[in-house]
Amino acid sequence: MQITIIAGARPNFMKIAPVIAALHNKQQQGYNISYRLVHTGQHYDANMSQSFFEQLGIPEPHANLEAGGGTQAEQTANIMVRFEKELMAHPSSLVLVVGDVTSTLACSIVAKKMHVKVAHVEAGIRSGDITMPEEINRMVTDAIADYFFTTSEIANENLRREGKTAEQLFFVGNTMIDTLLKNRSRFYAPPVWEQAGLQPQQYLVMTLHRPANVDEEDHLAILINEIMHNSRQLPVIFPVHPRTAKHLERIALAHPNLYFTTPLGYLEFNYLVANAKAVITDSGGITEETTVMGVPCMTLRDSTERPETCTIGTNVLLGTDPAALEPAMELLFAGKWKQGGIPPLWDGHTAERIADALLALLSIQTQPAQVA
């Protein structure tokens, strides 16, 4: 039995790494299961793609569709055309998609039209914000997928409301946390640590890339200026997403404690997060990592598809109004930020549960022992 695993963008790589490791373990135990790793090429530069494969020990993809670039429609179409050819040449028992990027949507549609079962890792999460491309990707993928691996009971309930049955749902936990816990001892400081003279708990980390925050350059400037105004002169480290970089080039920012870096590898970035006083972000995945590492997190969005990071974890949803930053920062510097906890099954064993479920779904047995 062969499974095709899809990865295309930076968030995917952290989610597939433990799944691949778990499937390797099943192979070593004698199970007749194989996989074909397909990189769509959605993120195609070294900082956004290759370094993650190297740092997380992900094997070289069996195929790279090289479908990056262009508008969302062009990229979706390119991935679909190229993945159709890939799946025709290499038939599969099941296509495993992860997360909510363009590749997730495109490959799910192709697989279903070719009558191949689809399993979605990180299914059922919803922000309620249809203006987010990721929300559309999630909703369409879950509308047509066959099996759903979920991170929370909230995600399970979302899927039940959408008509999914108990037999289709598998509450397994969070593969992002598998990767985090496995690699935490390997984190190391990026060059900016020395360049900025950073000390643990004495700096902030900021990431911004969502359209609501970065596409309007005046708003982006006001947002960053407000963060710096309330940072108490602490260094603020800003790894800049390519989407944000083009807007920053046209904004005049002059803050001696603001340090821009290119996108960082997984191990370097999470070293910064683990040692930060707080993280200010509009990313969903980072809120999961800060929750597990116990780092205060402020999310500059009006909604989140990961509410457990707020109800259980260290995350607080501030919205996109820069005025919300001042009271949040005062709470942080007063030492009154909530402690937070870790959601159920975010324990580092999610991929093992996924592998067990796949074996059962595909009725895969161990191979007979060879007779000498």
Rank of each mutant, 00 (worst) to 15 (best):
P211M: 02
I154E: 15
E226Q: 13
F171M: 11
D146M: 09
E249G: 12
R210L: 08
N174K: 04
T151I: 12
I227T: 10
D146Y: 08
F171L: 15
L169S: 08
T151V: 11
E162P: 11
W193G: 03
G173C: 07
Q195N: 09
R232A: 08
A145R: 03
N183W: 06
F149S: 02
E194L: 13
I224L: 05
G163W: 00
Q202H: 10
I222N: 13
N183A: 02
N156C: 14
P191M: 01
Q195A: 13
A196W: 00
S231Q: 10
A221G: 07
I154Q: 15
F238K: 06
G173D: 02
R161C: 14
V214C: 09
N230P: 07
T207L: 00
A212R: 10
R186W: 01
E217D: 12
R243N: 14
E217V: 15
F170H: 15
V240A: 06
M176R: 08
L159D: 13
A143R: 13
I227N: 03
L220H: 06
N158D: 06
P239G: 08
T179H: 07
R160T: 13
A245Q: 14
K164D: 12
A252P: 00
R160C: 07
L204D: 01
Q201E: 10
K246N: 06
P242M: 01
L220F: 01
E217A: 07
D146C: 11
T175C: 11
T207R: 04
V214I: 15
D218T: 11
H247I: 03
N174T: 00
G197A: 00
E217R: 14
N183Y: 06
F148Y: 15
N174V: 04
H247Y: 15
Y147S: 10
I227P: 05
N213S: 08
V205W: 02
F149V: 07
A145L: 12
V205S: 02
Q199K: 14
E249K: 13
S185F: 00
N213C: 05
W193V: 12
T165P: 04
K246F: 03
I144W: 11
Q168L: 07
T179F: 02
Q201Y: 04
D178W: 10
I154C: 11
D178A: 03
T150Y: 09
E153M: 14
R250H: 15
L208W: 08
H229T: 12
H229K: 15
A145M: 12
R250Q: 14
A245E: 12
S185T: 09
T179Q: 01
R161V: 04
R186P: 00
A145G: 15
R184G: 04
K164E: 12
D178S: 12
T179L: 02
N230S: 09
Y188M: 05
G197N: 06
Q233T: 11
T244Y: 05
I224E: 04
N174Y: 01
L208N: 06
N174Q: 09
F187E: 04
